[in-house]
Amino acid sequence: MIVLGIESSCDETGVAVVARQSDGLPRLLGDALYSQVKMHEAYGGVVPELASRDHIRRVIPLARQALSQAQFTLSDVDVVAFTRGPGLAGALLVGAGAACAIAAALDKPTIGIHHLEGHLLSPFLSADPPRFPFVALLVSGGHTQLMRVDGVGQYSLLGETIDDAAGEAFDKSAKLLGLGYPGGPALARLATQGDPAAFELPRPLLHQRNADFSFAGLKTAVMTALKRLGDDPTLQQRADLAASTQAAIVEVLVTKAVRAVKAAGLTRLVVAGGVGANSELRRQLNAAAQKRAWQVHYPELALCTDNGAMIAMAAAMRLDAGLAAPQPDYGFDVKPRWPLSEALRAET
Rank of each mutant, 00 (worst) to 15 (best):
R209E: 11
S75M: 09
F170V: 08
P202Q: 10
V334Q: 08
D23T: 04
L235E: 14
G184N: 09
T144C: 10
G265Y: 13
D320P: 03
F134P: 12
G274V: 10
I56A: 13
A104V: 01
G194D: 04
L125T: 02
G230Y: 13
R53S: 05
L92N: 08
L319G: 05
V59A: 08
A101G: 15
L323S: 00
V59F: 07
D320A: 14
G331S: 15
I111D: 00
P182R: 12
G14T: 01
A191E: 01
K335W: 13
V46P: 10
S9C: 14
I111Q: 00
A225R: 15
A346S: 11
V334S: 09
L253F: 07
A191F: 03
A314G: 10
L340P: 13
W338L: 15
F215C: 10
T83K: 09
P86H: 09
R337K: 14
R58N: 14
A302Q: 14
M313H: 11
K175F: 05
I311L: 06
M310N: 07
V254S: 06
Q71E: 13
M310A: 02
A96M: 06
A287W: 03
S35M: 09
G184V: 08
D31F: 01
A263Q: 15
K227V: 09
D150A: 12
A312T: 02
E117Y: 01
L74H: 06
A316R: 04
A42K: 15
V46M: 05
I102E: 00
P133G: 08
Q236C: 01
S75L: 09
A70W: 01
V18D: 02
